[in-house]
Simulated scan of single mutants.
Amino acid sequence: MTALTAPRATETKGVDKVLLEAFDIQLSAGVVVYNGALVMTKAGYGRPAAAGVGFVCAGWAELSPSQPSVTGGATDGANFVGLSTNKLRVRAGCGWFNNSTSTDQILQANCSGNTLCYLADDNTVALTSNAGARSVAGVIVEIDSSGKKVLVSVSPQIPLNPALSTGTAFLGIGSIEAISAAGALSVNTEISTLAVTGTTAYTLANGLYIGQIKRAVVISGASTPVGTITPATPSGLATITTLTAKGSGVEFEWANPASPAWYLKAVFGGATVT
């Protein structure tokens, strides 16, 4: 299949359809999104889905017959061209999209309820990540009798199977990584457990989607431990310091679509903010 050049009607599950609440997102500069197109986000801004890594599939675009497509403004998050709004309505849930072909074709055997599919373009999903070159679209639910359509459960926070992940997608609520040395905390996991030895500096890259939560907590300390966390794009803070005692930690949220940044939600166990 190829990317959309016109609106499409995204069919849902019918009488058994499961839909999440629709929500609004802003777009990257200059991108064109058609009704029914799969939309992916990065750093808080949406764009039509395509092959690429580090993106989160937000859902599909819902536009009106009188406005079947929108074009992003001159800058990220600006009003759409010719319109007085910068909000695109996106819906997540179970929707039908085009199947791929050849080794990327999704078959009945893949409808196990926990098999992921990947974004090939803004109306097509694929069975494989193409060796890490595609982001996750969602979970395969079923295929139609022709084998050309796939019902995909799309959610911006689908808990992804780490064995299938490309390493650039969020691994799900409750996912954990263990950190025992200075360096970057992963944005792919919700929780980082820290074994702090001496003065240890950590960094935190930009979040993957608006509303992402990141927690870091000290589980052990040695040699007068002093841990610090410096987010790449913070709001209202520069660094979290005094991560010393077992149980001290911090919770961030990647928020504000107009100017995405890590916001501080909580510090605990003696951690401080500078």
Rank of each mutant, 00 (worst) to 15 (best):
V139T: 00
A50N: 15
S259V: 11
N86Y: 09
A216D: 00
A43S: 13
S192Y: 00
V226Y: 08
S84K: 09
I229G: 00
A29N: 15
L38K: 07
T166W: 11
R91N: 12
T244E: 11
N130F: 14
N206Y: 10
G132D: 14
R8I: 09
E142I: 03
L116N: 02
S135I: 00
N130D: 13
P231H: 01
A51K: 15
G59H: 04
A131G: 12
S84I: 09
S175Y: 01
G113N: 02
I176Q: 08
P260H: 04
M1Q: 14
P48H: 03
S66N: 11
V250Y: 01
A201L: 11
F97Q: 01
T5E: 15
P48I: 03
S100M: 01
W262G: 05
L171N: 03
K214S: 01
G30L: 13
C111G: 00
A255N: 14
N256C: 07
P162A: 04
N86F: 07
I140N: 00
G95P: 06
C94W: 10
A245N: 09
G54D: 04
Y202W: 07
N130E: 15
G147L: 08
D144K: 12
N130V: 07
I210V: 14
K214R: 04
Q212T: 03
T166G: 06
S165G: 07
L107C: 01
K13Y: 14
I143D: 04
T274V: 14
V15Y: 13
R134S: 03
L151E: 08
I25C: 00
T244G: 09
D144W: 05
A74C: 05
L83R: 11
S259W: 06
F97H: 02
I158A: 03
Q26W: 12
L204T: 00
A61E: 06
G269F: 05
V218T: 02
K148Q: 12
A182C: 13
T168Y: 06
W262K: 02
S69Y: 14
G147M: 11
V152S: 07
Y118A: 00
G138Q: 02
V31H: 06
S69F: 12
V18K: 08
F97N: 02
N79S: 10
G73A: 06
P231S: 01
